[in-house]
């Protein structure tokens, strides 16, 4: 299945060595070290928040809240997991916490707002139609598609991160794929 190809790509990007000395310094309260970590990891966290929320302003808020929460929780960071993974879990929790309070507003708002200038350094033409279609997905389907389809999570990982049953995760991915294919006109291909 195509998910395998996406996962391989995602995992390849996550095998870069982590800056353990910088992480240790940040855990010890070194703000300059934490800024270095921010510079390295913020694009991934912002991208994740942007896709999960579908709204640029909300993504900025969530990214900010995630790094603030990370700073306050650094003492509890266990180096058994990767720092990038730990950060992403914080970001996902932040998005979910925020959405629980604002769910109704999000569902009736314009979901594509703020995504017009998302860069796409990986290819020549920015796939804005795809970005807009993703941002317009129903929230539950969007969350699963973003984690599994773009960020390479397994269903087990995504279900755990989103607080879902694995069956829900799989059903939502199917739903997201169907809706996206319909929105992009891929069903006829």
């Amino acid at each position: 299945m195509g998910t395998v190809q996406i996962r391989q790509r995602a995992e390849a990007g996550d095998t870069e060595p982590e800056p353990t000395a910088v992480i240790t310094a940040a855990v010890d309260g070194d703000l300059a070290a934490f800024e270095a970590l921010y510079r390295q990891f913020a694009p991934r966290i912002f991208g994740l928040c942007l896709r999960l929320t579908g709204q640029r302003e909300a993504a900025e808020d969530c990214t900010q809240e995630s790094f603030v929460a990370a700073w306050r929780s650094l003492a509890r960071f266990e180096k058994r997991s990767r720092f990038s993974t730990w950060l992403q879990r914080i970001a996902i929790r932040t998005v979910l916490s925020r959405r629980r309070g604002l769910r109704f507003l999000h569902e009736v708002g314009e979901p594509a707002a703020g995504l017009h200038d998302v860069p796409d350094p990986g290819s020549g033409a920015p796939p804005l139609d795809l970005e807009r279609a993703i941002s317009a997905l129903p929230e539950g389907a969007r969350h699963v598609l973003v984690l599994v389809g773009i960020y390479g999570y397994s269903h087990t990982e995504a279900a755990s991160a989103l607080g879902l049953a694995e069956g829900t995760c799989k059903a939502q991915l199917h739903r997201a794929r169907n809706l996206l294919s319909a929105a992009l006109g891929l069903e006829k291909s």
Partner: peptide, 23 residues
């Protein structure tokens, strides 16, 4: 359709540079 969608998803960059004001 799944293949085509997977290819499009695979082309998306996972990193997006945040605005400078965030830090």
């Amino acid at each position: 359709a799944h293949e085509s969608l997977n290819e499009q998803l695979a082309r998306l960059s996972r990193d997006v540079v945040p605005p400078e004001k965030l830090w």
